[in-house]
Design a protein around this nucleic acid. Sequence first.
DNA 1: CGGTATCCCGGGTGATACTG
DNA 2: CAGTATCACCCGGGATACCG
Lengths: 127, 127
Amino acid sequence: MLAPLDPDMFDPACPSALTPVRVGTKWGAMIVRCLADGPRRFGELRVPLHGITPKVLTSSLRRLERDGYVSRTELAGPVRQVEYALTPLGRSLLDPLDAACAWASAHWDEILDAADAALAREQAVAH
Amino acid sequence: MLAPLDPDMFDPACPSALTPVRVGTKWGAMIVRCLADGPRRFGELRVPLHGITPKVLTSSLRRLERDGYVSRTELAGPVRQVEYALTPLGRSLLDPLDAACAWASAHWDEILDAADAALAREQAVAH
DNA sequence: CGGTATCCCGGGTGATACTG
DNA sequence: CAGTATCACCCGGGATACCG
């Protein structure tokens, strides 16, 4: 059995502007990483992606599927169940993605500082 | 003296949808890589970024500057000259970016195949 | 549970033309 | 040379509500 996803695996203090490395869409890289340990279901994915709306999750998954990173399988059974899994191509993305995440955590402070400075400059211009 | 940028350093057969790894904007990662060997001027950057309009290049550079990846320096002199260079933070991006590029070239065929298949599916739906 | 249907908004992208 | 100005378009993102 697969361990459940950590609801806090992505820092909510990290606005999308601060996650410069993306896969396709804003949520692409996060979704791929959610699937790293094995197939996940729609509802499972919603947990760590704080507050993503179903529509956006669907469209993000559809794009990842279209681009060959993710596969979608409807499981037979009495209750509806859909599993999303990484394709070989999607799995190959984990390495560069890990490199990007390692970079982000190594330079987290500088990234936040730059964002703060940018914000401060914005405020200054407003006055 | 710095060698001029290769006009073909980016494959024009690679639409942005096929370059999933981005830095900020569509052009961000490419610009950062253009600055890898040293400072470059506005006009120099336009060469390898086939057909980027000055407005878009400006806004991309402004964002990279705002986010702390790139510095902008106006050189004194009779003719106007502006140099863009990587900050230490920007230079630190080169490693994960190289990993992403290595991934892209290693899986180029699969990426193109997936794009072709997606296009074919689109056409099929149209009929 | 795993989605759609609607409506809306902002901004990234671009073509074209003009400027100090 | 290194940009601005203007206008336009599209689409990703999001809120809300509803469906099989």
